[in-house]
């Protein structure tokens, strides 16, 4: 790639980063307001029964700044966040930032892995049916994909745990105390989330239609007329661009599914942490995870934009 080709990419990245910063501010504000308006606080949930006197609770609230107005609380949170300080968890007392790195990494593995599993199932079926049209094989394949897409992920998760862990003992059980990462632990949740995130049939449909549309373009006919590879000429518009678009569009769905899968498999990721924090009204943790989820979603769309600009010569002129 020539140096001049890097300029549009740099431009797009700058623009996307700016959008991301604005979006993070927006998301943090909305989440903060919702949390503020929601009934209860950490002390009504967690400290019930532990802190005896009403005075002690009031003291704790005071120490954590809960007595200030909501906007001054929000601004102090934002200023700290901009310095990389996400506060400490009210429940555990640990710094949220380092906690986020740990769960973020685990969820990233789960998300990327499941995305790959989804694509690994959907892409061959989509390509097969776009190239060969309706055949005796494409129908059952598509049916299979629709059925699989309809399986609820929690149900699939428990079935898989029962069969592979309890029945045959093929995979070790994950315990909440295990902090290290192991591919063996990761495999089952990745596959379950990849199969059960409910997007397979949609991915097949959009990729098949897009590939079919490109195949009937005039320039593909030209490629055939000159004896060149149709696959080579249709790759960018018929495959690369739709696949990156799918990845960007489906990341929120997979993150949503991750909350459930992480519960089921006891996977120490942000989904499980979010669940726990929501029950505890652990404000700093919830805010931090909301930020991290937004960053993940934005990363998907940044990836898609960069690929699009690299592939499409016209995009850099837009």
């Amino acid at each position: 790639m020539r140096l001049s080709g890097l300029r549009p990419i740099a431009l797009v990245l700058t623009r996307e980063v700016m959008i991301t910063v604005l979006l993070l501010l927006g998301v943090s504000f909305v989440v903060f307001v919702i949390l503020y308006l929601a009934p209860g606080d950490p002390f009504s949930m967690l400290v019930e029964g532990q802190v005896q006197s009403e005075e002690a609770r009031a003291g704790a609230r005071e120490a954590l700044g809960f007595s200030q107005s909501w906007y001054s609380q929000y601004f102090s949170w934002v200023t700290q966040m901009l310095q990389g300080d996400f506060g400490t968890s009210i429940r555990t007392g640990l710094p949220v930032a380092s906690e986020l790195v740990f769960v973020g990494f685990n969820t990233l593995i789960l998300t990327i892995g499941s995305m790959l599993v989804t694509l690994l199932i959907a892409v061959p079926i989509a390509l097969y049916s776009s190239v060969r049209g309706t055949t005796a094989l494409s129908w059952p394949l598509t049916m299979f994909a629709y059925v699989v897409s309809a399986l609820p992920v929690f149900w699939l998760g428990y079935i898989v745990i029962y069969i592979f862990m309890h029945r045959f003992g093929l995979f070790p059980l994950m315990t909440s105390s295990s902090r290290g990462f192991s591919w063996l632990y990761a495999l089952l949740p990745i596959v379950v989330l990849g199969v059960g995130n409910g997007t397979i049939s949609e991915v097949i449909r959009s990729l098949r239609d897009e590939m079919g549309r490109v195949m009937s373009e005039d320039y593909i006919r030209t490629a055939r007329a000159k004896g060149a590879s149709v696959w080579k000429h249709s790759f960018k518009e018929g495959f690369l661009i739709p696949v990156t678009e799918i990845i960007a569009a489906k990341i929120p769905f997979i993150l949503g599914g991750a909350v459930i899968v992480e519960q089921v498999f006891n996977w120490p990721g942000m989904g499980r942490m979010a669940w726990q924090a929501a029950q505890d009204r652990d404000f700093p943790v919830i805010m931090g995870i909301a930020m991290l989820a937004a960053v993940f979603v934005r990363m998907g769309s940044m990836f898609q934009r960069v690929v699009y600009v690299m592939v499409n010569p016209r995009a850099s002129k837009e």
Binding site: E217, D218, Y219, R221, T222, A223, R224, A225, K226, G227, A228, H233, K236, E237, V311, N312, P313, R314
Partner: peptide, 20 residues
């Protein structure tokens, strides 16, 4: 034969060339 011994040009040339 395709492209080698028989070559073809089409109508609507802008759409007939690969835009990428």
């Amino acid at each position: 034969i395709r492209g080698g011994e028989i070559a073809m040009i089409f109508q609507n040339p802008k759409a007939s060339l690969n835009p990428f």
